[in-house]
Design a protein around this nucleic acid. Structure first.
Length: 570
RNA sequence: CGGGGCAUAGCGCAGUUCGGUAGCGCACCUCGCUUGGGACGAGGGGGUCGCAGGUUCAAAUCCUGUUGCUCCGACCA
């Protein structure tokens, strides 16, 4: 490919709306252009990288027995109504009607489509397991699209669905995909973690998110450096914190004027924060008051609260009125002597002794609270409801956990029979009984992976591509393309590299050297071969490594071999 | 959905307060000169000032409505 024939409009400035580095750089380097909020065109360079990522995905999916298919974007409403998600999905689903008034959705995902696709054809356990995947545009009408390809409304996604005859088979498929995902992101050269995730409403089974580590990421994860543990902050399970045994003192009520925050209580009573019990008041959809109690230095994890209270789907902050009705008062709440509320107590709180908790009246607290003795165990829910914090012990090995931020680029999870039952997709098993499929679903955001790679690999000059997903591996730059000698020599090198299978670009534009160098750095080709009067004279060629910035000089005769060797290290 | 901001040439912006018929930098075209890190000079092309009404002799500028974009929050891949 010649730069004079390549459509790669680079810009010195980026639009005001781009705030994320990956967004700015993809825009400036001529990878993407915006059509509407959260909707983008991919220009040649961007699409080359997308195709390379997709190719890696294909190879790894195929290696595990996946078969590629292509399903429609436009999906009839009937199948969504059948699964019950037409109503559930809400405004996030792009909907449309055809000329006859029939309803359709632009697919946000393809569980319904694939399940109805195979349900009439796959009738026997002998046809299982089955793994089908596609790489397709998906649509989610985000409330607020932003960050370029990171959170868009139309995006390219690979999704594979597995069908097995039983749970064991499903777990094998899951493990295959887990392994494939690890290989995919390794091959893309990304630093990532497979993170234990909450699979929320889908329920049951397991789920991992593949998260690329980057400070700009939207999700927060906890991980252990000693063992393999990593979990999203919402999911991270926590061990019970043992407290040193103490002689139990009798419960006592004391006055604590104007001490409605833990900070004030702790200072007023001169107790360490670990000896205080904090309350957070929530309300659920049914307007039930839910009081959550954690240690003073801990935070409440709302997801865990939802999971531990039966029937709760969403939590909102509770109003004062509701709190009053329960016979307590904000700032001075405790489970002692309360009735009209659902009380959820963190497991670590139950092991505390001689602690401080509210007295359910203004300006008063209990001291010497020992939950095991003083809480009515019949009325409370004891559960792990706290948010993980840096330094918490790892639930697997006990080492101190670290926290980091990341970009979720893929997720694997088991669906079980959820969709096969809802859509009546069954097969006949060996024993002659009819059973619904055990399904799994595995997604990768292709555009997001490209964006994440840039977030993780860039500098002040531009993008730094890993060789595997760079739009071109090598760029050959004659500093002055108007000089026939230089151009001819550059073409020689270019042809030789191309013959050796290198994905190479010849920058034959008649621009000044500075302009071309700036573009090379911005676009981020891993290697730049520079041809100049200097190199013509010395008989050597100069190679610049984008990532390290180092310059290498190779002998003309075996320069292709040297470049190939160098590429192996990138 | 709550609260801000913006909309003027492909991109980044000024002009709006105080109405007088649109400008700057980058990009683009031509010529000259230059060629190892986004040169320079000269000339040039390109804008229904988001859209629709209204006020006025006159509207980018004032008024009303509307659409789009964007930031923070709530929500989420």
């Amino acid at each position: 490919m010649r730069a004079t024939e390549l459509y790669a409009p680079t810009l010195r400035e980026s639009p005001a709306e781009a705030e994320l580095i990956s967004h700015k750089l993809m825009f400036r380097a001529g990878f993407i252009r915006k059509a509407a909020g959260g909707i983008y065109s991919y220009l040649p360079l961007g699409w080359r990288t997308m195709k390379k990522i997709m190719q890696i995905i294909r190879e790894e999916m195929d290696a595990k027995g996946g078969q590629e298919i292509m399903m429609p974007i436009t999906q009839p409403a009937e199948m969504w109504k059948e699964s019950g998600r037409w109503a559930v999905y809400g405004d996030e689903m792009m909907r449309l009607k055809d000329r006859h008034g029939r309803e359709f959705a632009l697919g946000p995902t393809h569980e319904e489509m694939i399940t109805t696709l195979i349900r009439d054809e796959v009738r026997s356990y002998k046809q299982l397991p089955l793994m089908l995947y596609q790489i397709q545009n998906k649509y989610r009408d985000e409330i607020r699209p932003r960050f370029g390809l990171m959170r868009s409304r139309e995006f390219v996604m690979k999704d594979l669905y597995s069908f097995d005859k039983d749970v064991e088979g499903m777990n094998i498929s899951y493990q295959k995909m887990y392994d494939a995902y690890s290989r995919i992101f390794e091959r893309c050269g990304l630093k990532f973690r497979a993170v234990e995730a909450d699979n929320g409403a889908i329920g049951g089974g397991h789920s991992h998110e593949f998260t690329v580590l980057a400070p700009s990421g939207e999700s927060s994860i906890a991980y252990c450096e000693k063992c393999n543990f990593a979990a999203s902050d919402e999911k991270a399970e926590l061990k019970i914190i043992q407290t040193a045994p103490e002689e139990l003192k009798p419960l006592e009520k004391v006055q604590t004027p104007a001490c409605h925050t833990i900070e004030k209580v702790k200072n007023f009573l001169k107790v360490p924060i670990e000896k205080t019990i904090k309350a957070v008041a929530f309300m659920d959809d049914a307007e039930r008051l839910i009081l959550a109690f954690v240690r003073g230095d801990h935070e409440v994890n709302e997801i865990k609260v939802i999971n531990s209270v039966e029937g709760a789907n969403h939590l909102y902050m509770a109003g004062d009125k509701l709190i009053e009705k329960a016979g307590t008062v904000a700032g001075f709440m405790s489970p002692i002597g309360i009735s009209n509320a659902i009380i959820v107590v963190d497991q670590s709180v139950m092991l505390m002794t001689n602690a401080v908790a509210g007295a359910n009246e203004i300006d008063a607290h209990f001291i010497n609270v020992t939950p095991k003795r003083d809480f009515d165990a019949e009325k409370i829910i004891i559960s792990d409801i706290r948010m993980v914090q840096e330094g918490d012990p790892c639930p697997h090995c006990g080492e101190k956990l670290k926290m980091t931020r990341g970009i979720e680029v893929g997720q694997v999870f088991t669906l079980g029979k959820k969709y096969s039952e809802a859509l009546h997709a069954t097969f006949l098993d060996e024993d002659g009984t009819t059973k619904p499929f055990e399904m799994g679903c595995y997604g990768i955001g292709v555009g997001r992976t490209m964006a994440a790679a840039i977030e993780q690999n860039n500098d002040a000059d531009g993008i730094i591509w890993n060789r595997a997903i760079a739009p071109f591996e090598v760029v050959v730059v004659p500093v002055n393309a108007k000089d026939d000698k230089q151009l001819a020599f550059a073409e020689e090198i270019y042809n030789e590299l191309q013959k050796s299978g290198v994905d190479v670009l010849l920058d034959d534009r008649k621009e000044r050297a500075g302009v071309k160098f700036k573009d090379c750095d911005l676009i981020g080709y891993p290697l730049r071969v520079t041809i100049s009067p200097k190199t013509l004279e010395s008989g050597k060629i100069e190679v610049k490594v984008r990532r390290s910035g180092e310059f290498l000089n190779f002998e003309r005769e075996n320069c292709v071999k040297s470049i190939l060797e160098l590429l192996e290290t990138l």
